[in-house]
Structures are given as C-alpha cells and as structure tokens.
Design a binder for these strands. Sequence first.
DNA 1: ACAGTTGTCGAACGAACGTTCGAGACATCA
DNA 2: TGATGTCTCGAACGTTCGTTCGACAACTGT
Lengths: 217, 217
Amino acid sequence: MASSTPIYRDAEAKLQHILRTASQVFAQHGFEGASMRDISRAAGVSLAGLYYYFENKQHLLYLIQSTTFTFVLESLRSRLEGVDEPTERLRLLVLNHIEYFLSHPNEMKVLSHEEDALGVPYSEKVQAIKRRYYALAREIFDSLAAEGLAPGIHPRIAVLSLFGMMNWTYKWHKPGVDPDALELTAAIVGIFLHGVVPPGPESKPVFADGITAGDQR
Amino acid sequence: MASSTPIYRDAEAKLQHILRTASQVFAQHGFEGASMRDISRAAGVSLAGLYYYFENKQHLLYLIQSTTFTFVLESLRSRLEGVDEPTERLRLLVLNHIEYFLSHPNEMKVLSHEEDALGVPYSEKVQAIKRRYYALAREIFDSLAAEGLAPGIHPRIAVLSLFGMMNWTYKWHKPGVDPDALELTAAIVGIFLHGVVPPGPESKPVFADGITAGDQR
DNA sequence: ACAGTTGTCGAACGAACGTTCGAGACATCA
DNA sequence: TGATGTCTCGAACGTTCGTTCGACAACTGT
C-alpha cells in the first residue's frame, strides 16, 4: 500500500496559493468587503475556478482561520516541549505568537479581525481551537502564578490583557521601523511581568477606589 | 435675537437615535456586512428617509466614529483638569477609556473594529482625532516616565501595549460576570505599571536574547 | 390663505454580489 | 484509442446592494 497517496497533481499547492492570496485580500478589505471576484483576480484563477477548491466564501475563510490557528497552536506546543520554567514558558508563548504575527500579518489579521464573520458550523470549529489555545495560555499563566502573584490580579483578566497586547500589534506594527519579534516579545513580557515602572523600595499600589497610596513624595 | 436657534423640530434627536441604532447594527454585522436596509429596519425609518440625515453609508460611519471619539477625548481632557500626579493621570486615561467602552460597547466596537472601513476624505478626519488622543496618552506616559522607567521600555511600544489591553476588552468583556469599569481599570493599570509578578528582592529581568536572569532559585 | 422649508417615503435605478452550470482541455491508465 | 477523473472557465442565474427621484404631508413665518 505504498501508492495509496491521493492523486494531487498540484492541487494542494494551488489551494495554499489561493489561501495565501485570499488572506491578503481579506486583510485589506475585510471579509464582507472583499468579493470573490477580487480574490479570483488576485489569485489568477477564474471566478468559477475558485469553487473547485472550497464550497463557498465562508468555507474559504474557515480554511484560512483553521490552518493558521492550528499551526500557531501546534508550533507553540512543540516549542514548549521540555521547557518547565514558567517564565520561559510564558516567553515562548509570546514569542511564538508575535513571530507568527510579524511573519504572516495577513493571516493573523484575518484571524484577529474576522472572528465573528464565520457562521455555524464553521464558527464552532474555530472556537474549539481558540479555546484550546486559551486553555494552554491559561495553564502557563497558572504555573507562573503558583510562584506568586501581585495582589488583586484576576487570572482571566491578566491572560486576556496579555492577548490584548499581543493581538493589538497588527494595528500598529510597521516592519522595519518597529522592533522585531524578539525585541517586541521582550517588551511585552517585561510589561506583563513587571510593568513599566522600575521596582522601588516604596511601592504605590492602585486600588479600585481610585486612591493611590503614597500620594505625596 | 433670542429665537436664533435653528429650526430643529426633533431632527437632531432623531439623528442621534439613528446613530445609536446604526452603531448596534454595525457592531453586530460589521460595516460592510450591514446593509442600509438593516439599519432602516432597526431604526424604524424608511430606507430613503435615512438619506435625509447623511450623504451616504460612509458618512454615517464617519458620524458615529467622529462623535464617539470626540466625546471620549473631550471627556478625558475635562477629567484631567487640575490633576497633576502622573500616576493618577494615567489612571484617569484608562478609567475614561474603559468606562466608555463598557457603557457604549457598540460605538466603541465600531470605533475599534472599523478603523480601516472609512475612505478618504472621512478617514483623515478620524485619524486626526486619533492622533490627538494618542498624543495626549503619550504625553501622560512621558510625564510618568520622567519619574523613572523600567530598563528597556520603549515609550511607543508601552503606550500601544496599553491601548492593546484596553481596546481588546470589547472582544471578551461580559457585563455582569466580568469586573466593572473601576475594577477593570485598576487591573489594567496595575499590570501596566507593576506587572503581574509581585515585587521581590531579586528581580528577574527578561532580555531580548531570551535569557532569563537568575534562573535557579 | 399662501409660500417655503422640513421631514418622510414607495418605487425604482444600475451595479455588484455569491453561486451554479455545462462544456471543454488535459493527463492517466486500460 | 477510448473511457475516466482532474482541473478550468465563460456565461449566466437570481438576489441584494447603495443610492436617487419625485411626490407629499406637516409645520413655519407672513
């Protein structure tokens, strides 16, 4: 059973090409704003020819989101292997995320920006991957928190704030002028772990009632 | 000249009603995904009747973004008046932003999500407000930084990371289950200033090369 | 009572949309 | 050579899109 591989002349490669091109078009005009004609023109495939590779426009978006998200998740899993130190695991989470963001900006913009564009049944499948990804991040954070946590930090909010810092980058990061993945990762991890204020002898915690301790200095 | 007020039977109020309703529809389906017919139905105005209040769909989006952004900016300015302490000014920035996010989720989602949906000439006007808002935030941060900054923090990245934490909230915040504006503000300011790790005698700075200082404990 | 402005709407416009269909080109293996 | 599966496409389908137009009611100031 050596030659049980499917036919595949180069259909698989062409699908990947279409997915990459469609990501670019979706990133530029949004899912609803981009037409199948835009994609067919950009990919160099006839309008009808596109439908050989997927069932409809939603399915196309699903393919992009699903493969992108799966790759990011699996890439993180493999990087995490054999690493136990919680801080380093957190750094790998951020690095993996940021690296993919900067190297595949179109795909990641589509992933971040078109979350709600998918309808059932596609949405559930993507949600499932997202939940696994979040659970892994949460697990990493909880290990870190076990070593000690600043007072008043809710784990859920901490993790979502971290994702906020990471996912927002697609809105402002300009390759070449802004820092690369390694430096940006260090910056975000630094802020997340220790904040922007240097550790001092007298700390000034901020309470929910708005009173800042140690006002006069 | 006491009765020099414009005619305004209730046109201004009705425009506000349409803007609110349209924000809701845009927030739900996205700018491109929402049709003028959706908005007319939701607002209880005929399709043609909408065009008495604005020139076209883009103008409608512009009105939403412009008034929302202007309100947030002016609201922040007035809160900042007479407050000099940098930490408290930063807290007011976050509080103002988060409060409006939680009290006007539709408008803020449209503001965050449909940044690129506007074309010239509308886009430039909104960009101008955004630049003023960012400049004010940057000014607040720089005052804070003048009192001391953790090593390796780029101001631009710090401010944009803060905006990331704040602006990402619309993707996950569930009213009633997640914290209210005051508490959420305290959480975000706390992370931004001091991070999630408690201040300890031996700090563990993270360098760009990925080596964590003080590995063994 | 009249003229003018403000506000509202049904009906229609051309354009663009996602999707389908049947035909045909090309390669494969009998 | 002929049958079969893979891949591609022009042309068209019905629907929905943003926008416009002309008519008309209601209110205003004279």
